[in-house]
Amino acid sequence: MGKVIVVTSGKGGVGKTTSTAALGAALAQRNERVVVVDFDVGLRNLDLVMGAERRVVYDLINVIQGEAKLSQALIRDKRLETLFLLPASQTRDKNNLTAEGVERVITELKRVFDWVICDSPAGIESGATHAMRHADVAVVVTNPEVSSVRDSDRIIGLLDAKTVKAERGERMEKHLLLTRYDASRAERGDMLKVDDVLEILSIPLLGIIPESMDVLRASNLGSPVTLADARSAPAMAYFDAARRLAGEALPITIPGEKRGIFDKIFGRKAA
């Protein structure tokens, strides 16, 4: 049985969709069967980041409503044959997501795929709770700033209350993915420090993804950054995060930290 992962945050624009695509493509490059599922009904995005927007015929809602079979709605990636997308509907109302429908789809996907990665919409409403409901593992995407941290804290509370795992009295595995980390702003003290975020949220760190133009460039190409530019700093950070998700223990480096030490040694002021 595959593992179900929810990529969630509470706050919008922090990098959930980017991370879903990047982690999905990174895991698929390990030859594992991966499906990324867009739960952002009405504001679908994942198809764009995956470069599959013109190949969408059926979507999650069609499958839930019984208008299409799962196999008809799944889109296989053109570059990686073990990577699939289940798109969201852009036109249908999100109230068409039903608890039974979502459960049926996730159960079917788990049978076929090693990883089912659910891209959650922002907010704490039904879209987000549907996306997290059947998760085994949560990736909590957070930017190093107070409002994002507080929203993540709120989401962690929901993960411990509103998921099937929580209701069974089991512990939901939660990981922090700190994204859009800007080393120069961190040096100036304009951002929360990694330690502070970890102390507030008190869940283990899956990785730190630097703020980078490479991410934007990749999405404009319709490609997860781990496919578009595997040698770029954000891609390498996502590859490491994917390995940790798969159970490897890797040390975590804070982007730009080396330069910080270098600057101190040579007595230069950081710009």
Binding site: V146, R150, D153, R154, I156, G157, D160, E199, I200, S202
Partner: peptide, 27 residues
């Protein structure tokens, strides 16, 4: 035995409350 997260309310008129962990902003 765990952190109290933002948005959570613990209401216990019967006596003392001990939290082994932090109480978040908004909790």
């Amino acid at each position: 035995r765990e952190p109290v997260r933002s948005g959570q309310s613990v209401i216990f008129p019967e006596g003392d409350v001990t939290v082994i962990g932090s109480v978040a902003s908004g909790a």
